[in-house]
Design a protein around this nucleic acid. Structure first.
Lengths: 291, 291
DNA sequence: GCTTAATCAGGCAAAAATGCAGGTATGGCG
DNA sequence: CGCCATACCTGCATTTTTGCCTGATTAAGC
C-alpha cells in the first residue's frame, strides 16, 4: 500500500468529490480517481459509495478515515516540531470568518506577517467551513457562535458596534438594516439588536456581512448597527448614537486543540491578536491561547 | 512530503545501509538513496549521519523514526482490522529461532498453514534479530532467554532433551559436545548441562545448533544432550540415558505486544502451538497468548 | 602496501504515474 | 421532453520515477 494515497483519500472524504479533492490537492481529478481505485484495490475494500450526492464514506471508509486523520495530524506535528525555529512558519493556514472581518484584517500587518514567514500560505474564506476540517490547520473568527465539534472558542477581542445612518439624508429612525446569518448556529446577533433598538422598528434588509449593510445605509435604506471600524471607514455614512447606544460583541477565535500548538497556527493566532485593534477598532482580550 | 518515503526511511534505519534497506523493501539501492535524499530535502533535516559504520540516525532522525514507527504500526493494525475475516491472513511474518527448531517446525503442518492463508509469507531466520524490529510482525522462539526490549516471552512448550551417542562406537563417557551461543543473552544452557553431567567431563565441541551437534555425535566426536526430536530422527545415533538423565527446556515465544493482535501474528502463533508437539516431541503449554 | 569486498553515487533506458483531451452519464430546469 | 451544467471515466503524450550498469570510495585482510 502506498501511504501517500491516504492523503488523497482524506481529501476526497473532505471534498465529497474527486474534482473537489483534486482542487484541494492541486492535482488532476483523474489522478485522484486512479489513486482511490488503487487504494481500494490494495485494501480490498470499497471506501466510498458512489452516489448521486457524491462520494459518501462506507463503514470501512469511516474507519480508514479515522486512522488516516490520526496519521495526518501526527505527521503534521512531526514536520512542525522538526522545522528550524529560526526559519519562518510554513504551510497552509485556513482562516474562516465574516467577509468584512477578514477584509479589514487583511489590510493590517499582513505584509509583515508574510515577509516574516515566506512559506506561510493564508487562505481566507468568508463562508462557513463546509465540513469539519479535522486535521487541517484551520482558524475561525466568529462572534458569539459556539465552536463546532473539535474546536474550542477563545475570546479574542471586544469589538465595538454603533448605529450609523446616511450622512446626506434625513434620519428616519424607524427603518433599519440588520445583520443576520440563518446558517450560523449559536445565539443570534439579530435578536440582540432587536431588543437593543426596540421592537417597533421596521427591518427593511438583513444581510450576512457588515460591508453589505454599510453600502445599504449609505444608499439610504435605513439605519444599522455596524462595527465602528466599518462604519467609520465608509464614506457617506455617519455615526449617530442618538438612534441606539453603542454595544460590544466578543470576537472568538475557534481553534482545534489538536493543531493549536502547530507553529503556523500560533503565528497566525498571534498576528490576529495584534491586528484586531487597528483593524477592528477592538480591544484585544489577552486570551490564554495554548502555548 | 511523500508519506511513503517514511517507509523507506524506517527500512534504512533498521538495516543501517541503503543496500540492506533495498533488500528489505525488495527494491533497488539507488531508489532507496534517492528517496532518502528527497525526504531529507523536504524536511530540511539530515536524518542520518553517513559514517564509515553505515547510516546512523541523527537526533532529528531519532525523532522522525519514533513517529514513523507509530504511523507504521497504526497502519498495520488498520489494514489488519480491515481485512475480510473469511480470507486468510496476509502479510509478512518473521520467525526467529534456532535452526533445528525452525527446520523441524517447517516440516509439520506448514503446508496446511500456507494453504489456508495463501497471502501469508513466513520468513524464518536461524540467527538473532540484528536490530530491534519494532513494528515488523516478528515472532521468536528461544529457550530460557529473556525477551528483548518491547517483546514479552510466553512459555510455549516443554521440550525434552536426552543424551545421545554414536550407535556404532564404543561409548566414551568423558567426551561431550554441547550447545552454546555466546551471542545470546539470558541464562546459559551450557551452564545447566555442565552441572547436569558433572564437571569432570571434557567438552570437545560446542555449537550453536542441535543439528550440528547431532552430526558430531554421529561422527563419534562424543556424547551430547540433544532434543529427543532431533536425536531420535538422526540415523546413526542412539539415546543413552545412562550417560545423563533426560531434562526439559521451556521454549518461549517472544512477541511484541504492539503487534500481538495482528491477525497474521495470531495465526502463526496458533500454528506454532499446534506444531511443537509433533515437531519437537514437546508438550505444549497452553499459554495465555493475547486474544 | 596491495588486494578484496562492500557500499554509495551518477548516467541512461525502461516502466510507471500524471495531465490533458474527449466521451459519457446524471440531475436540474424550463 | 430536450437542453445545460456538472462530474466522472478512458486513450494518449509527457513527465517523473525506477532499475541496471558503471565507476569511485572506503574498510578489512593478508
Amino acid at each position: 500500500m502506498n501511504w501517500s494515497h491516504l492523503e488523497t483519500f482524506i481529501a476526497i472524504a473532505r471534498a465529497g468529490s474527486l474534482t473537489g479533492a483534486a482542487h484541494l490537492l492541486g492535482t488532476d481529478q483523474t489522478t485522484v480517481g486512479r489513486r482511490l481505485n488503487t487504494l481500494e484495490a490494495d485494501l480490498r475494500q470499497k471506501l466510498f459509495k458512489r452516489s448521486k450526492a457524491g462520494f459518501l464514506l462506507t463503514e470501512a471508509g469511516e474507519r480508514v478515515l479515522t486512522d488516516a486523520q490520526a496519521v495526518n495530524t501526527r505527521l503534521s506535528r512531526m514536520i512542525d516540531d522538526l522545522a528550524d525555529p529560526d526559519r519562518g512558519a510554513e504551510g497552509i493556514v485556513r482562516l474562516f470568518g465574516n467577509t468584512w472581518t477578514l477584509a479589514r484584517l487583511a489590510s493590517r500587518g499582513l505584509d509583515a506577517l508574510t515577509a516574516r514567514h515566506p512559506g506561510l500560505e493564508l487562505r481566507m474564506s468568508g463562508r462557513l467551513p463546509p465540513a469539519p476540517l479535522h486535521g487541517e490547520t484551520t482558524l475561525a473568527l466568529w462572534f458569539d457562535a459556539a465552536a463546532r465539534r473539535p474546536d474550542i472558542a477563545y475570546p479574542l477581542a471586544n469589538v465595538p458596534y454603533a448605529a450609523y445612518c446616511a450622512a446626506d439624508r434625513t434620519v428616519t429612525h424607524d427603518r433599519w438594516v440588520m445583520f443576520r446569518d440563518d446558517d450560523a448556529d449559536g445565539p443570534s446577533f439579530a435578536r440582540v439588536v432587536e431588543r437593543h433598538i426596540g421592537v417597533d422598528r421596521r427591518i427593511v434588509l438583513t444581510a450576512t456581512d457588515a460591508s453589505i449593510l454599510a453600502e445599504a445605509i449609505r444608499g439610504g435604506a435605513g439605519i444599522g448597527m455596524l462595527p465602528t471600524a466599518v462604519g467609520d471607514a465608509t464614506r457617506g455614512i455617519v455615526r449617530d448614537d442618538s438612534c441606539a447606544n453603542p454595544i460590544e460583541r466578543v470576537l472568538h477565535l475557534h481553534l482545534d486543540p489538536a493543531i493549536a500548538d502547530l507553529r503556523r497556527a500560533q503565528v497566525v493566532a498571534r498576528w490576529l491578536l495584534d491586528a484586531v485593534e487597528p483593524a477592528l477598532a477592538a480591544t484585544p482580550i489577552r486570551a490564554d491561547l495554548p502555548a
